[in-house]
Design a protein around this nucleic acid. Structure first.
Lengths: 191, 191, 191, 191
DNA sequence: GGCTAATCGAGACGGTACGTCACGTCTTACT
DNA sequence: AGTAAGACGTGACGTACCGTCTCGATTAGCC
């Protein structure tokens, strides 16, 4: 540990930290974002309310910290060599993340909150989880070809339809991932 | 007046109803969704809290009622005869709606809330505002040609990228609407 | 009916009046005074709220009107000829009235309310139910003898102990009515 | 400090406690029992509503806590040596307490409430203020003589007439305290 | 081993909004 | 004019959570 960050006094309890993060994960699934309160998180974590407030200002902050690592992992797909398969696999992982994963539920909750809370919007903007996960897929299928549009336009084209499908409450099973993948590649000029 | 709609007792005050709907519109802009409370709505509307609760169970319900008509109007675009222009105009209207319009702000807030409130999700699902606005555009540019994919897939393809762009907090001015329109039409096989 | 008291318009509904008085009786027993509301009375009587308010200003007024006749009847005792028996019988009737009778419950409720509501106090003062019921008993046992104290002092001496006993929540069965009767008569100088 | 009384967490604010008790005293005099609300008490005491609810469930509980000490003090009379004078002085103190004292007003309000609220009845029964104040007077005038009746019957005989006189709204100035004292002593067989 | 300092738990504090209830008034149509 | 129906503004109810605060207890590094 860095000498500068060494501080006297009782060190922060790693137990308390992880208990809070797990409590948030659990509570999001059990009671939902709206019904999740700082008080409830503290009680569920077996930690005092003061301790929660000492380290996080809002439940959004806790949730964000709790879901970032999981999100990155769940959105990474292994390359197969076939562009269509790669893109389709990514889209499937994306839908699965948004619909099934606790981290995805947290992410959707945060996106929702960001629509009416500027602080949460800033928090989300600090880490473009979906864009960052789409970029390596796009770069891989392009190979050495040039990207005909800016990267963020490309990621929006790739991610957008699935994102809208899920967030507007449509049945995830009915999304035609393969067709979306083909369209996307055709548009990029791949194959 | 219709015999069926004749009711005994004091009739509902149209003044109170519209005052509440306007108050909700104003408050959403001024304080945002999260800080908007039933109490605040009642006070802003100059109406009793009880009256608000008599007719709406949640602020989401009020917001939904307040934004539906505006949304339909703002998302309707006049046909120009040129498919690319029509689609691009629709996308521009969609982005403008989501970003600038009070009704669009309400809609975004509701979509956000729907991510962690099943009742709001049901409310939104009862009226597919974006899908319904996209369908006539798609039908018009198709003319007599057949739609190669189910309509909801097509609307998702059209709406999704712009929807994601806005909800993920990207700069609306940097979205290449024309390119999205061309891609969409190419994919439909139009022209 | 007197020509002078004839009024134009729809005459007062006797059905509504008695329905309200009965509803008050029932509700006092079922839910108690505190939980008895004007709204509840109206609903129980099958009468509109407005009709209740038109004729009575408070639930105390209704209750008073509902209990006066019953009270007078229940507090009247038949003379036996023996002073001690007469007085004891009266005290027993008094305790029974206060403890068991619905009208007595109403009376106790009104006495209670009168302690912190001047209007109810005036209402009760307009009809000295307990004093009026004690007076004939006292006059009878006195016969032609003169009352050595003012009548209200005598009624207080007679009624007071039993009244306190019941209103202070003591067990009614443990009150020694016979002894109270003997003391009272001794003090009056009877026999 | 005693180990048992040591408590973790922030200790209860004595300021808040006494502010509430004083507020209740004041409000009873100013607005009366019925118009006294938990909200009003909190505001008058400069204390949050939650704090009031944390320590007392009803306004009756607050009132009871506020009046017990005062009542005991005001109902204690100094012995003079003369039984008639002692008893008469007690009755005068009793009437003064019930009619003039704020604590007495609180007591009357509670007795009233107890007639239609079982919880208040229990509260009052837990502390027989009037009986407890009468007992020492009775024991003193008795000296070494035996009490010919159970103590509660004796206290009822002593307290009852004055209690009834006041609670039935009669003019306190017209109560013949001296005569009541003489009758009471004669009945006990004193002198 | 004592001192300093930050953390932790517990829980009371003043606030504010919640959703409900009853209040008493009113506006309708009907009788 | 009286009535049933029912919406209206008002305001207290009791609860929940907010974010802050004051405690005592704990746990480290430093002298």
């Amino acid at each position: 540990m860095d000498v500068k960050t060494r501080r006297i006094g009782r060190p922060r309890s790693e137990l308390a930290r992880s208990a809070v993060l797990h409590a948030v994960d659990d509570l999001l699934v059990e009671v939902g974002y709206a019904a999740m309160t700082m008080k409830g998180i503290a009680e569920r974590a077996g930690v005092s309310r003061q301790t929660v407030y000492r380290w996080w200002a809002t439940k959004a902050e806790i949730l964000f910290e709790a879901c970032v690592e999981d999100a990155l992992e769940e959105l990474a797909v292994r390359p197969t060599g076939a562009p269509v398969a790669d893109v389709a696999a990514y889209l499937e992982a994306l839908v699965r993340f948004l619909v099934r994963s606790p981290a995805g539920a947290a992410y959707r909750a945060l996106v929702g909150e960001a629509q009416h809370d500027a602080a949460v919007a800033r928090l989300l903007a600090s880490r473009d989880l979906l864009g960052d996960s789409a970029r390596p897929v796009i770069e891989r299928v392009l190979g050495r070809a040039a990207l005909p549009v800016p990267m963020d336009q490309a990621t929006a084209a790739l991610v957008g339809p699935a994102f809208f499908w899920v967030l507007s409450g449509r049945d995830p099973g009915r999304l035609d991932v393969l067709r979306l993948a083909r369209r996307f590649l055709a548009d990029l000029g791949v194959r």
